[in-house]
Amino acid sequence: MQFNKPLRSGVLQKRYKRFLADIDFGDGDITTVHCPNTGAMTGCAEPGSKVWCSVSNNPKRKYSLTWELAQNSKGEMIVVNTQHANRMAGELLKTELMPQLSEWQEHKPEQRYGNEKSRIDWWGRDSDNRECFVEVKSVTLADGSRGYFPDAVSQRAHKHLNELMQVVSDGHRAIQLYMVMHQGIDSVMPASHIDAKYAELCQQAESAGVEFYAVKCIATPQEIKLERPVPVTL
């Protein structure tokens, strides 16, 4: 995935109210930008970090800039815009990078499913004509080279795992796909120290037949690229 326009670089002053951040672009003013990340963003939003933002020409937007990338004190690049995880998952399904998710007959984003009419991130049919339901999560919380999800207690993530288990019960494939959006992360596991219920549900889901995979992405101010699968430990 390439960024359509050059990103503006600046220095993060603070992130607040979940969806806002103040950034110094070196033009003498502090600019408020949109932060498209509802998580805690631990380790991704340290004041003084170098950041990159995209620019929108939409006159209806209150904030014309969107925070896309951050660089931590180790020089590692992090994708803070969680919407890109779904886009990169879509690119993954077109490749043979992960054999378990390749050679699909078709795939579509944001499809309604389940009794609660939720939206699955990706739906498709594999080479055996089985329906496949893929829930995508963006992983940016790092402890050394280990990545954790979630970075805050997430009732929504609990709901998604329960729905994936129902998908398996209905005779379909259900997949929890972690897109690693942090350069320093080389493996993924549930953050039991943050959300013990989520970690418990992951183990239940695996026992029920839900498949767990993770793929690492690498970002630059020009593009985000798929790199390689990484292990998931439940």
Score class of each variant (00 low, 15 high):
Ile194Glu: 02
Lys14Glu: 10
Pro6Gly: 03
Asn162His: 12
Cys53Lys: 08
Gly184Arg: 02
Pro47Glu: 11
Arg112His: 14
Ile78Asp: 07
Lys74Arg: 13
Pro190Leu: 01
Thr82Met: 09
Met77Trp: 15
Val11Arg: 10
Asn129Pro: 02
Pro231Gln: 01
Val11His: 04
Gln176Leu: 06
Ser138Lys: 06
Gly184Pro: 01
Ala191Tyr: 07
Gln2Leu: 10
Val79Glu: 08
His34Ile: 03
Cys53Trp: 07
Pro99Cys: 07
Glu227Thr: 00
Lys62Thr: 14
Ser9Glu: 13
Ser127Gln: 12
His193Ile: 00
Met1Asp: 08
Arg112Ile: 15
Asn86Gly: 13
Met1Leu: 10
Cys132Ala: 11
Gln204Ile: 00
Tyr213Met: 03
Gly124Asn: 07
Val79Gly: 03
Ser154Phe: 08
Lys137Cys: 09
Leu226Glu: 00
Ser118Pro: 02
Ala191Leu: 01
Lys197Cys: 02
Glu106Trp: 15
Phe212Ile: 02
Cys44Phe: 13
Met179Glu: 03
Ser64Val: 11
Tyr198Trp: 13
Ser138Phe: 08
Val153Glu: 12
Ser118Phe: 14
Gly26Trp: 09
Asp143Lys: 12
His107Glu: 05
Ile30Gln: 06
Glu131Asn: 14
Phe149Arg: 01
Arg125Lys: 15
Ser192Asp: 13
Lys117Gly: 09
Gln222Lys: 07
Pro99Met: 11
Lys74His: 14
Val11Gln: 05
Asp186Trp: 10
Tyr148Gln: 10
